[in-house]
Design a protein around this nucleic acid. Sequence first.
DNA 1: GGGAATCTAGAACACTCATTACAGATGTCG
DNA 2: CGACATCTGTAATGAGTGTTCTAGATTCCC
Lengths: 200, 200
Amino acid sequence: MKTGEGKTGRPINFDKDAALEAAMLLFWERGYEGTSMADLTQAMGLNPSSIYAAFGDKHALFQLAVKRYMEKRAIYAGKALEEPTLEKFIRALFANTVAFLTTPGHPPTCMTLTGAVGCSRDATPARDLMTEIRKQNQVALRERLLKARKSGELPKGINVDDYTRYLSTIIAGLSIQAANGSTKAELKRTAEMALQHLGY
Amino acid sequence: MKTGEGKTGRPINFDKDAALEAAMLLFWERGYEGTSMADLTQAMGLNPSSIYAAFGDKHALFQLAVKRYMEKRAIYAGKALEEPTLEKFIRALFANTVAFLTTPGHPPTCMTLTGAVGCSRDATPARDLMTEIRKQNQVALRERLLKARKSGELPKGINVDDYTRYLSTIIAGLSIQAANGSTKAELKRTAEMALQHLGY
DNA sequence: GGGAATCTAGAACACTCATTACAGATGTCG
DNA sequence: CGACATCTGTAATGAGTGTTCTAGATTCCC
């Protein structure tokens, strides 16, 4: 049974939200395998028992951390999707990505890359989860471009699937540029150049 | 003392080159931390003692594996650098990258990404090594573009540093696309679209 | 207040990690 | 053949892994 769900008995004595936030930041920085339960107990300020009761095992905790990351941090893409026109969407996508990657207080790269790219056999579920999320992001991007195609904003000569992969490629590349240590100004100029070459 | 260097005594009984190749492939797939010495002993067909005598500790072995990777696998970039004109260079860069990422027999992504992006405190030297290599690749790219600037092939309106980062971003993005499971045909079309937008 | 339910703390668990010690095997050189 | 140098195989090392057990603390409901 998970901590905090019981109706009677001793209530939990810690901030579940804050603990999960700490776990997320640690996973974000060190990845799934690079983060040990000992590291987590320290960062979350909890004993193993409390963590296991509240969040389940390491992989379950990782999943919750990733979920939180997607909902609270990596929302820049989702926000851009709401832009009314294709041009505004793409401009917002690049601007939000750069802003996200250079926000202080967390690693300058996407959690789906630090989380697990290469990993041991045991951690393949974590790696697959990261890949799955990257693909889902791409699906959302594709749907937005399909909408643009229908509204006539996307020229007929451009294939939606190809354009999706192309934009996705640039966004992913920006994340690596940031991980390499590019400054905010440099990332901005790179994004600006991408926009120019896209015709915006 | 390293195995095989002694003039007298029992000679080594294994193929050092083949063993290092096996280690490289395993590191490439699972990364530095995701690969255990036990995995390596099995894949290399050697006992720990032989590995330590011949290659040093785990990090030294990783460095040798990365060196081999750069010299024998990731030469696609270097090969493209030799192209005489800027256009031929960039076309070759994209074509070689796609060919490299889709070559059977090794993971469909760059070793500098699987090697270590997020990792534990102990493995930060490995991560830094990966970052360093990505940066070095970028330096080589920049020098080629500088040459193009001097020869007049690169329009004056384009900043060399920005263009370097932009191309580097796309190449890195392609590696992630491949890791996501993109097919060879898809990667080719993505590269083709990138070339079109670059004006080629 | 008494019992049941729940949470907390820390030790303990079985296992894997990278690394090394040791003994035996196999070669070269005199 | 004999002395020496080097390599190989196995077992052991101590530290670290994720996870669970146990005892005690704290709260709710009756």
